[in-house]
Amino acid sequence: MPKRKNSSIKEYKLKSGAKRYYFKISLGINSYGKRIVTTRRGFKSYAEAEEAFNQLSTKKADDFVKQKQITVDELFTLYFKTYKANTKEVSALSQNSQYKNHIKPFFGGRYIDQITTLEIQQWANKLAHEIVEARRNISFLENMYEYARKNNMIESNPVSKIIKPKYKKPSSFHNGENVYTEKELTDFLNTAKEVSPIIFTYFKLLASTGLRKSEALALKWEDIDLDKKTINVNKTISYGPNYKIITHAPKTKASIRTIPFSDTLKNVLIKYRDNYSTSSKIVFANRRGAYFDTARPGLWLKRVYKKNTDLPHITPHGFRHTFATLLIENTNIKPKTVQMLLGHATISMTLNLYTHINENNFADANQAFKNIGF
């Protein structure tokens, strides 16, 4: 056996009798005049301990990061203060819930420097196949670790080293797409009309205007001009403190807009107002005359799908997508006009819709090329 040259590495025994190795090393004096000395133990072999010793010996005192100084839960508490101060309250509440459901159960009590890249990769792979919002949670954990790195709690960010997995596409969507054809939309609305006037009117509104679900829930009758056939979109609803429903301005200036609507929708709104609406100023009010919460449209959808099990499933946001898709497919409308109607902040968001439609019409394009000899 070759002679072990590093006298700083010592051998000791566990209660079980198993051999382990440890060492103590001085990294010098840091900028604050403090001598940095650290002890590492638990190595199963001399070679393993020597490798760790050699790596540490190259570090400067100012670069030293103490092991096991903070858990993921503790890091979240620190980072969340900064995150909350720089985002909307509803986003902060949502992210807090996401952390508790999808990050904390896996890593909450673990020390941040003891979690390996492989463990994070396995967690990310699992999450990407289970939930649609996996990307959001993986990015949040990466930002937490980056905060820790910049504050000298860890040497590097292990989340940035993983291979970002392909993310889950909701399998319940019709043909994998969150959108209806014109016939499917007609079938859905016919069923919704049988289920409830408020459900029918709500989804008819979404499919006829492209409103976001929370924009529609926030509407008051004063926002709708039935004579001019316009809707003034100036607010949205979300959860506030203690999960109380609040209204506030939309996320972007582009979301504040006035949009037109058809005679068909006008007649639907008048019938709903005169025959079914409550005395509340809110268009879609609950029995107390207050706003519905943002989960309500999803529950309404379930009632319609229970009534007609043959209907393909889409989300409330799918009706906004359906509106844009049918508009682009059946008219010569310009992208800028679609941007205005949907309240997109940038034209690139709108052009992505056009790209989607063009991909769906790939076969038509091929046939057109054949017809003109290209």
Rank of each mutant, 00 (worst) to 15 (best):
R4A: 08
S8R: 15
E11L: 15
K13H: 12
K19H: 08
Y21M: 07
K24E: 15
L27Y: 08
G28A: 12
S31T: 13
S31R: 15
Y32R: 14
Y46L: 03
F53H: 12
L56D: 07
D63F: 04
D63V: 06
K66C: 08
K68Y: 08
Q69C: 02
E74P: 04
T77D: 14
Y79H: 01
F80A: 09
T82I: 08
A85M: 02
A85T: 02
S91G: 08
A92Q: 01
N96W: 05
S97P: 00
N101A: 04
I103H: 01
G109C: 00
Y111G: 04
Q114T: 14
I115Y: 00
A124C: 06
N125Y: 03
A128Q: 13
I131P: 02
E133W: 02
R135I: 02
F140D: 06
N143V: 05
E146S: 05
A148F: 08
M153L: 15
I154Q: 05
S156K: 15
V159N: 04
S160H: 07
S160D: 09
K161A: 15
I163C: 00
I163E: 13
S172H: 15
F173I: 06
F173L: 15
N175V: 10
E177L: 14
E177C: 03
V179T: 11
T181R: 10
E182W: 02
E184V: 04
L185I: 09
T186A: 14
T186Q: 14
T191M: 06
K193R: 15
I198H: 12
F200A: 07
L205K: 10
L211Q: 04
L211G: 13
S214C: 11
A216W: 12
L219N: 11
K220W: 09
D223K: 11
L226K: 11
D227H: 07
N232K: 13
S238Y: 08
S238I: 03
N242K: 15
P250M: 13
S255K: 12
I256L: 11
I259E: 13
P260V: 10
L265F: 11
K266D: 06
V268W: 13
I270R: 13
Y272E: 11
Y272L: 12
Y276V: 09
T278N: 14
T278W: 01
S280W: 10
A285W: 12
A290G: 06
A290F: 05
D293L: 03
D293S: 07
A295M: 09
R296N: 07
L299N: 01
L299K: 13
R303M: 13
N308V: 02
D310W: 01
L311W: 01
P312Q: 03
T315F: 00
G318K: 06
R320C: 06
H321V: 09
A324W: 06
A324P: 03
I328Q: 07
I328D: 03
E329L: 06
T331Y: 01
T337A: 13
Q339E: 00
L341R: 03
G343I: 02
H344M: 01
A345Y: 05
I347G: 04
S348Q: 07
M349K: 02
N352E: 14
L353C: 00
H356M: 08
N360S: 06
A363L: 05
F369A: 09
F374V: 01
